[in-house]
Design a binder for these strands. Structure first.
Ligand SMILES: [Mn+2]
Ligand SMILES: [Mn+2]
Ligand SMILES: [Zn+2]
Ligand SMILES: [Zn+2]
Lengths: 140, 140
DNA sequence: TGCCTTATTGTAAGTTTTTGCAATAACAAT
DNA sequence: ATTGTTATTGCAAAAACTTACAATAAGGCA
């Protein structure tokens, strides 16, 4: 089964519909892999699907994130970016030089458990961005 | 010494200037205590300082956050909110009902240590927003 | 006090993101 | 295949946020 058929079934199971707009955006996210801004996603998806509009891109990205097919992050500054949902991970961004690294969720999972125990919340999600000072900028 | 004089000295020490705009915004943040959007802050500060403009509010909030006098967060949805800098803390927001609780930084200090050891980054900052499902929504 | 440097602000315009609503199209049922 | 229901989209406008640059004013110094 193709991966787009997978996505379609996942949405149908929740009572949602697959559309050409959602497929085009998912295709862009899968193809790029990295975090992308809504504007970048719009430009790329527009080439696959002429007539696609910006409000649809914004709504679709939020929808995909809510339904676990995409992840959103505030990596850079205040602006949201999106990427396809894959292995659980987090980010650390250097406050000085803006370098960004990924951290596997596995490294923090026991501490997430502690957080869940202490707070009573369950199913606390990954893909958090932390800010710190990178090794290179510590020496300068 | 008044707290505004404290703020003034903190800025001067870094080569920055205290202005009526910064004082008005700091006063609003101190008075409210909670997270506020730039628009809310603008409306309140405008009453204290007629003539204040929105671009100044956005720039000032970013400036105050960079210099440790305010904290920014993405608590709600995609939008940034700000609050006065005080005790280190984090937030957990319920994905279902949007209820938000505060978590003392102390609870996460071992997570932060693990993160600093694993990544090599130092001085990783607090005030992170986690998303999960609150106790009440777990039962429903 | 009065001047000088330059950090900071206001203005005006641009860009990004959101919203309400009518038109469209997915897909379940016939 | 045709139809009906309604989730989803496009459109148009509004709201939120950013930018470039000239005007202003904070605060160091004579
Ligand atoms: Mn990521
Ligand atoms: Mn907070
Ligand atoms: Zn760095
Ligand atoms: Zn809840």
């Amino acid at each position: 089964m193709t991966c787009s058929a997978e996505y379609t079934l996942q949405l149908r199971a929740r009572g949602f519909r697959m559309t050409s707009q959602r497929l085009a955006i998912l295709h862009v996210l899968r193809h790029e892999g990295t975090h992308l801004s809504p504007g970048e996603i719009y430009k790329k998806a527009l080439m696959e699907l002429p007539g696609l509009t910006e409000p649809t891109v914004y709504r679709t990205l939020e929808f995909l994130a809510e339904n676990g097919l995409a992840r959103s992050s505030h990596a850079g500054g205040g602006r949201l970016t999106y990427q396809i949902a894959a292995a659980d991970h987090h980010h650390i961004v250097c406050r000085v030089c803006k370098t960004e690294i990924e951290v596997e969720h596995r490294l923090l999972s026991s501490l997430y458990h502690a957080l869940e125990t202490a707070s009573g919340f369950k199913n606390i999600g990954s893909h958090v961005t932390f800010f710190g000072v990178c090794p290179k900028c510590q020496t300068n």
